[in-house]
């Protein structure tokens, strides 16, 4: 093969594109340091006059940040844990255990992925509000104070299981050689033990991938958490809180403070993503090749 020319056009294209991707984020960071009255002053200036952390202080004092973080961490933590547990168990069952109805159930799991989440927004809201036996409800789900909707459970209930997660884990478990599992069975190991000591370690990378995908999705979830925290403000998560900053404050001064809030809420995900990027990217690619 003859040596290729230097791809200057490709570099130009990618670099200009990258600039469009990155400049908005830089604008967010720089605006978060701008002083009162500095935002909105014409002509426009990209850099702040000096790097003043006052807006970060303001974001912290206007919002109950520890609570927002705690709620976001609780919601995301439970959702990730539960998604991994259920997907791994179900994936193992669908990949390696022989039982009647397996093919049908696998199709069912595939079918669940077809339904877009917005379809469930209204019914799930009503189902949690009328949850039998919770929040003062009677056994028919009536009469109480919001059922599960006013409790922390409302945050993560709709995110406990992922159809895509089950599918993904099943695809990875299929690749484990049957001989290993069979040998363990002959040694007298129960299925739960096989799952824990063979399937889980063998699919560790896939679990990290799925965990990361779930983490990013749930941490960034906005509409469901907005509804839940409208019902009970104690359940507010970071994205909802930051959005609320706008209506709390004097509009002339808010922009830089909102930007500071955005930096605070974006940073944890960004760090996790940059650290575990390869797992995340692999997950995205797999989701593309199904």
């Amino acid at each position: 093969m003859k040596p290729r020319r230097f791809p200057w056009f490709s570099y130009l294209l990618v670099a200009v594109g990258a600039l469009i991707m990155v400049v908005p984020f830089l604008d967010m960071v720089f605006t978060s340091f701008k002083g009162p009255g500095e935002f909105g002053r014409l002509p426009y200036r990209f850099l702040p006059e000096d790097f003043d952390f006052a807006n970060y202080g303001a974001a912290f004092s206007q919002l109950d940040m520890p609570r927002l973080f705690a709620n976001s961490i609780l919601m995301t933590g439970v959702a990730v844990f539960s998604t991994l547990l259920t997907a791994s168990l179900a994936g193992y069952a669908l990949a390696k255990l022989r039982f009647r109805g397996r093919a049908v159930l696998f199709r069912f799991v595939l079918a669940t992925m077809m339904f877009p989440p917005f379809l469930f927004l209204i019914p799930n809201f009503l189902i949690l509000a009328n949850w039998p036996g919770a929040g003062g409800n009677d056994l028919f789900g009536a009469g109480g104070y919001g059922g599960l909707l006013t409790t922390y459970a409302a945050l993560f209930m709709p995110f406990l299981v992922s159809g895509f997660g089950v599918f993904l884990m099943r695809q990875f478990v299929v690749a484990i050689p049957d001989e290993i599992l069979e040998a363990a069975r002959i040694d007298g190991a129960g299925e739960l033990r096989i799952w824990w000591s063979i399937v889980v370690p063998q699919t560790k990378a896939a679990l990290i991938t799925l965990g990361l995908l779930t983490f990013v999705n749930v941490w960034n979830e906005y509409i469901w958490t907005l509804l839940v925290s409208t019902v009970n403000p104690d359940l507010m998560t970071l994205p909802v809180g930051i959005q609320l900053l706008q209506s709390y404050l004097d509009p002339n001064l808010t922009q830089p403070i909102v930007m500071a809030g955005l930096v605070i809420s974006t940073l944890p995900v960004l760090l996790v993503f940059l650290l575990l990027q390869k797992y995340y990217i692999r997950g995205m690619m797999l989701s593309g090749l199904k």
């Binding site: 439970v78 919770a134 104070y145 006013t150 409790t151 922390y152 459970a153 993560f156 359940l235």
Partner: peptide
């Protein structure tokens, strides 16, 4: 799951 289903505030004894 059980712990987080506990009520958060305002409601005691229904």
């Amino acid at each position: 799951l059980g712990a987080s289903a506990c009520t958060t505030s305002n409601y005691e004894g229904g």
